[in-house]
Design a protein around this nucleic acid. Structure first.
Length: 810
RNA sequence: GCCGCGGUGGCGGAACUGGUAGACGCGCUGGACUUAAAAUCCAGUUGUAGAGAUACAGUGCGGGUUCGAUUCCCGCCCGCGGCACCA
């Protein structure tokens, strides 16, 4: 009887006692670093979707172990941040206690599934020994001018009562709590990620083992646009409006210029504006709109003309109207655009509404003239563009930028969609920012030897809502002496965001107990970079951009030896509830892995999650499906269990199938095709079972059964270990050497040919592997099922694909 | 709207570089065992016609290339994910 509970408990204890999964340290051996995205230990515990990625990495880790690598396969907790704090607030416990409790639950659940983590390297981002170095990295950034204070308006979540980065928004709502986000000006610490935008983009090409989809998402998020800034003088004034455009080739079609309502130029132009009342009204109107209303694409564009103000196009000295309109964003480019309605959809729409002139300056083969229905936005040939007429768009862009630079009225310019990273939060549960404000000396860093700046234990940690962190109220923590002048000074009271600690945690696993530095150089050199990183696609534009940014910075200051942190990235597909909806308390469709492991066994659960479908695809859960892999494991158990009761009669076909399976499973693991690997196991086991029943004999020797267990071991470690022991092998199966298949055993003696007539299957022909074409054709034609289709017809052509098929065209 | 991914039985899915469509699992149907049920085992399971051999149709839709297309090309439809007035 396959008693999974007893077996799993027994082997988990033995593995722990023998420290089987302690990371190898013999640096003569090749290394393999396989990493999961570490979880937030949330109060709800794990659902069955969480471990899916962990199972895959565990399979790879165990295989590498058997292949003789030193394997680094660690786990830890990303425990700072809003979810943990909100949970704690709701349940009226201190976040530290809530976090500790949740970690204990998560860890227990993970251990039940029998992962091969080296728990001696467990890390926790909320541990002062850990965040000491998060703070240290921040200070290095500050020293190099990459962290700066900003007072610009930022995203503010009224419910979480903190500022947020752009990456923390979903559709204009707080990603955490779903509240509508407002814009609020406030003091913030900001990281200059834009300085790394080019490298973050260009180095994506150095990552062939990242999925293209994720690289594309990052490219879009970074959003590099090459173009030009063009200065339009204000007529009769020293002021100028600088616009950014990627389509300088259309500049002769510019019929007006538009400023974003928030553009500070509006105020300085006030004396020249004849219709100030109308302008002021418009500004108010815009202010009253929510961010969502403003960015609603379906709404009609609105704007107001700045009467009396004219901008001069430097190319033709033409005076054009200046408008204010909220379809122009102040946060991108220069907050001003040149409007070319003939060649831009948005300008077209606006010009239609306000009856502004539309002037075509680009022609294409199929569009000699505008059809007055829509803008012509493709490249083409310039016309009515002065000296530039007749050039192609791409030539014109180069020559026009040259002209601008020579005439001192503009410059080449690259813009990015990504914004600098708003890095401070007005919340309690985060790493304190290790800076001090001194009236005399300004911002002073906490001396490195005084790190960490620990989070004070407090009674009240609820957000204040004033834009100040709750830490601001703790006067004996806040008030310090200035490390520089010794005078009175105050600590920075904002904390770091959720994503801070996760930017470098993969480095800490390499050297988790080092108190001198975040990672020792020689260890970093040996283990870094991460060979395989598995996690959810939702991190494509958040964590994975932030971490690459920090890593490049650490590379620049000599902490790491390679420019990219993760060599291969694989995303895991979600597991939905049985009803096809996302698993959530709300729908009552959450499946608990602990319960499933208890009922069916951790091994069956592991196997099922790999078998459900393609690894990167979203699939709905099915407990019945899980019972299928459970039945499969019972068959494996029964075969090995009965192997000493049946005589061994080695069967060549089954031996061959075993070796084919070894090959397939090996290849499938490397390609993350676990579903077909599991199916290959089932095929093999089915045929062994059938043989046993039919012949009352075991077709595989103990040695070969051992091979079967070895390739199954990464998937079903407990059962494999148990049966390995039962078969009389000594030592852990994970200390054994990963089996190799034998080429001569996987070659088939006979080949089944497909015989087609006019491409339609008419017969199958089984011939010896060595048979030549003539022989096969002869056999095929004499086959009744084939000859009846050939009768009375001429064979015009014969297609012969060796080893596969023969096709007669009649 | 743009970018990416996908659409195959009742369901999850398989099919290598164009070459047996539906592997494997679930479910369902029938049978064996059982007083009965569960479990287990055996047989069947894309549709239509046929007792059957077999024939025809069939991988979202419409065309095309090819001896041969789930696979390649063109034009659509639908679903999922990402971005979204980014000039």
């Amino acid at each position: 009887m396959y008693n999974h509970q007893a077996i799993e408990k027994k082997w988990q204890q033995r593995w722990r006692a023998s420290k089987l999964y302690r990371t190898g340290e013999d640096r003569q051996k090749p290394k393999y670093y396989v990493l999961d995205m570490f979880p937030y230990p949330s109060g709800a515990g794990l659902h069955v979707g969480h471990p899916k990625g962990y199972i895959a990495t565990d399979i790879v880790a165990r295989k590498r172990l058997m292949q003789g690598y030193n394997v680094l396969h660690p786990m830890g907790w990303d425990a700072f941040g809003l979810p943990a704090e909100n949970y704690a607030l709701k349940n009226k416990v201190h976040p530290r206690q809530a976090t500790q409790k949740n970690i204990a639950t998560f860890k227990k659940q993970l251990e039940l599934l029998g992962f091969s983590y080296d728990w001696e390297r467990e890390i926790n981002t909320t541990d002062p020994k850990y965040y000491r170095f998060t703070q240290w990295i921040f200070l290095q950034m500050w020293r190099r001018g990459l962290a700066y204070e900003s007072y610009a308006p930022i995203n503010w979540c009224p419910s979480c009562q903190t500022g947020l980065a752009n990456e923390d928004l979903e559709d204009g709502h707080c990603e955490r709590c779903g509240s509508l986000v407002e814009q609020k000006p406030m003091r913030q610490w900001v990281l200059k990620i834009t300085k790394y935008a080019d490298r973050l983009l260009d180095d994506l090409d150095k990552l062939p083992d990242w999925e293209e989809a994720i690289k594309e998402m990052q490219r879009h998020w970074l959003g590099r646009s090459l173009g030009a800034e063009i200065d339009f003088q204000i007529f009769g004034s020293e002021e100028k409006i600088t616009v950014f455009t990627t389509r300088i080739d259309t500049i002769f079609g510019c019929t007006y210029v538009v400023l974003a309502p928030e553009n500070p130029l509006v105020m300085s132009l006030k004396p020249k504006i004849n219709n100030w009342l109308a302008v002021e009204n418009y500004l108010q109107e815009v202010k009253d709109k929510t961010e969502l209303q403003r960015t609603d694409l379906n709404k009609e564009k609105t704007g107001v003309c700045l009467e009396g103000v004219f901008a001069v196009n430097p190319f033709n000295q033409e005076k054009v109207l200046v408008y204010l309109a909220d379809y122009v964003l102040n946060s991108y480019g220069t907050g001003a655009v040149m409007a070319v309605p003939a060649h831009d959809e948005r300008d077209w729409e606006f010009a239609q509404k306000y009856q502004l002139p539309i002037r075509q300056v680009i022609i294409t083969n199929n569009r000699e003239s505008l059809n007055l229905e829509q803008a012509l936005i493709t490249d083409g040939t310039l016309r009515d563009s002065g000296d530039f007429s007749g050039l192609s768009s791409s030539e014109a862009r180069i020559k026009m930028i040259d002209w601008l630079q020579k005439n001192n009225s503009g410059r080449e310019k690259v813009n990015y969609k990504i914004k600098d990273w708003v890095y401070s939060r007005q919340r309690y549960w985060g790493e304190p920012i290790p800076l001090i404000h001194c009236d005399k000396c300004g911002v002073v860093p906490v001396p490195e030897e005084q790190l960490p700046v620990t989070l004070p234990e407090v009674e009240s940690y609820a957000p204040t809502g004033t834009g100040e962190s709750p830490l601001a109220a703790i006067s004996d923590w806040v008030n310090v002496v200035c490390p520089h002048c010794g005078g009175p000074a105050k600590r920075e009271t904002n904390t770091m965001p959720q994503w801070g600690g996760s930017c470098w945690y993969y480095l800490r696993y390499i050297d988790p107990h080092n108190q001198q530095e975040l990672v020792a150089k020689d260890l970093e050199k040996y283990w870094s970079p991460v060979d395989l990183y598995v996690g959810g696609a939702e991190h494509a534009t958040r964590h994975l951009i932030y971490a690459r940014f920090w890593h490049k910075f650490l590379y620049d200051i000599g902490v790491v030896n390679y420019e990219e942190p993760f060599i291969k990235l694989q995303h895991v597909g979600l597991i939905m509830g049985e009803d096809g909806r996302k698993m959530s308390k709300r729908w009552g469709n959450v499946i608990n892995p602990e319960e499933m492991a208890k009922r069916f066994g951790a091994d069956a659960l592991r196997l099922y999650e790999m078998f459900m479908g393609p690894f990167d695809q979203t699939v709905a859960w099915s407990t019945k499906g899980l019972s299928g892999t459970r039945k499969f494991l019972e068959k494996v158990y029964n075969i090995v269990d009965s192997s000493n009761k049946l005589p061994v009669k080695e069967e060549k076909q089954i031996l061959s199938l075993l070796h084919k399976t070894i090959k397939k499973v090996d290849e499938d693991i490397e390609a993350f095709r676990f579903n077909t690997a599991v199916s290959a196991f089932m095929i093999l086991i089915n045929s062994v079972t059938d043989y046993c029943q039919a012949h009352q004999a075991m077709p595989l020797s103990s040695e070969n059964l051992g091979k079967l267990l070895q390739i199954l071991a990464p998937f079903a470690p407990h059962l494999s270990e148990e049966l390995w022991d039962k078969l009389g092998f000594t030592g852990s199966i994970f200390k054994s050497k990963w089996p190799a298949y034998q080429e001569e055993l996987i070659k088939d003696e006979t080949i089944t040919y497909i015989v087609q007539v006019n491409g339609r299957l008419r017969a199958r022909l089984t011939v010896l592997a060595g048979a030549d074409e003539e022989e096969i054709v002869h056999l095929a034609i004499s086959e009744g099922a084939v000859s009846k289709w050939l009768e009375g017809k001429d064979i015009k052509k014969r297609i012969f694909v060796p080893g596969r098929l023969i096709n007669f065209v009649v």
